[in-house]
Design a protein around this nucleic acid. Structure first.
Length: 423
RNA sequence: AGAGGAGUGGCGGAGUGGUCGAACGCGGCGGUCUUGAAAACCGUUGUACCGCGAGGUACCGGGGGUUCGAAUCCCUCCUCCUCUGCCA
């Protein structure tokens, strides 16, 4: 959520940023916000004045009562009736204005960072780094949706039976490889100084608003109706919300957490031929890294997180490229996002396996996540997160890129974790 | 899930209709004393909003209500504790 004070101060810069996202007329909504804010202030001033007067009279009444002057007290009481009705009226006006203002602010995405490239389509994303020699497989190469059947390690039909499409069942070495990857990712993050968290995988509404999944992506989350909970689409949500309404001290920073969770996404309307097999699922596993950083350091932290993810891909020996997402492709709440994609030699396409983002104060403002600086001022922090990593496409790439006649070699770093070297 | 009890500032803990943003203790910060530290003593110590400022307003788990006035009374939801039930 954008800060009104920031909109007032940097209106032009913010409008430019919103144009970069391809918004039609951000001027309109920004003007509405500023007008409402003016109304809010006026109403608040009036309300406070009314309440102050009414409080004063109440105090007088109290004094008179104590002195036993009941008639005088009764006489003054009558004066308050009017204040009371106008106070109620103003109170209602104020909460109406505030909720309209909030609804409006919820509709405005984060302002892209200066380094975010112009553009609206995937082709406009800037490739910052790309593996030079892409692997080429023999003509007998198979996509992972065939390989998993050949080796009987992931079963979509069983998932269909038990749940439905997009909920695969991992079997035998498939399950063990999953577990190996999760443990490998967790251990690597812990080595890099991240403290492990095992959060709940269902969250309440407040948490959904805190990190920005609500109200923007309401339809993308599974909703537990009888409890009004949501299944998490990513561990980012529960882990970041650990710090909702928290004031940290400077010494606590940066906060670094890692968590493994299953993730649930309805992916309404996003199915097609290009998302076969493991490429898109309703339930998948992911290890997520989250940091809370000082505003002055958050872009350093972003680079550090990016390099952590790059390190994982290198250790897994997967060909990757790094994208700087363009304005049109940037997520609603992010200021800058690096996507990491892995090349699948069998599908002959790039698969997104990680998104590393800086949200600056956008989430922190919703979360009321602040720190107390030396000068005793409370200031919003910056939140960041990244997948390190999402499992299914990593799994797909490992299976596809390492396939050979009669077996699939798994990366050496996983041998110990998996307990086998080949499928 | 049922019955009973409880939720107050960083923590502990008073307060059951007005003088309460809230006693007191601990902790934190500043100071006195000390070569330094400890102890002792003195002072200070929440957040947000409105206002140029003086100052004002709101917040005692959340929301709503009664009242001139609510931490205090009523309703409702949430959370925790105890007992019973059920269960990995």
């Amino acid at each position: 959520m954008l800060l009104i004070a920031d909109i007032l101060e940097n209106k032009e810069r913010i409008l430019q940023g919103l144009h970069k996202r391809g918004l039609d007329s951000p001027e309109e909504v920004i003007e509405k916000v500023l007008n409402l804010d003016t109304q809010r202030k006026e109403t608040k001033t009036n309300l406070d004045r009314t309440l102050a007067e009414s409080n004063g009279i109440s105090k007088q009444i109290g004094q008179l009562m104590r002195q036993g002057e009941h008639e005088k007290a009764e006489a003054i009481k009558k004066k308050t009736a009017e204040l009371r009705t106008s106070g109620k009226e103003l109170q209602h006006q104020l909460s109406d204005i505030e909720s309209t203002l909030k609804t409006l602010l919820y509709q405005i995405p984060n302002v892209p960072h200066q380094r975010v490239p112009e553009g609206s389509r995937a082709e406009d994303n800037a490739v910052l780094e790309e593996c030079e020699r892409l692997p080429v497989l023999s003509d007998s190469k198979k996509p992972h949706w065939d390989l998993i059947k050949d080796y009987d390690i992931i079963d979509f039909d069983l998932g269909n039976k038990v749940t439905g499409a997009g909920f695969p069942v991992y079997k035998g070495k498939g399950a063990r490889l999953q577990r190996a990857l999760i443990n490998f990712f967790l251990d690597e993050a812990i080595k890099a100084g991240y403290a492990e968290i095992q959060p709940p995988i269902v969250i309440n509404e407040a948490s959904g608003y805190g990190t920005g999944q609500l109200p923007d992506k309401e339809g993308q989350m599974y909703h537990v109706q009888n409890e009004d909970f949501y299944l998490i689409p990513t561990a980012e949500v529960p882990i970041t919300n650990l710090y909702r309404e928290v004031i940290l001290s400077e010494a606590d920073l940066p906060v670094k957490h890692v968590g493994y969770t299953p993730c649930f996404r309805r992916e309404a309307g996003s199915w097609g031929a290009h998302v076969r097999g493991l490429n898109r699922l309703h339930q998948f596993d992911k290890v997520e890294i989250v940091q809370i950083a000082l505003p002055s350091r958050s872009y350093e932290v972003l680079e550090e997180m990016l390099q952590h993810v790059v390190g994982l891909l290198k250790k897994l020996d997967l060909p990757y490229r790094i994208l700087n997402l363009c304005g049109g492709d940037l997520g609603f709440t992010a200021a800058l996002t690096y996507d990491l994609e892995v090349y699948s030699a069998a599908q002959e396409q790039w698969l997104e396996v990680s998104s590393v983002s800086n949200f600056e104060t956008y989430q922190a403002n919703r979360l009321k996540l602040r720190y107390k600086s030396e000068g005793k001022k409370t200031t919003l922090l910056h939140t960041l997160n990244g997948s390190a990593l999402a499992l299914p496409r990593i799994m797909a790439a490992i299976l596809e890129n390492n396939q050979k006649e009669g077996g699939i070699k798994i990366p050496e770093v996983l041998w110990e974790y998996a307990g086998f070297k080949e499928i």
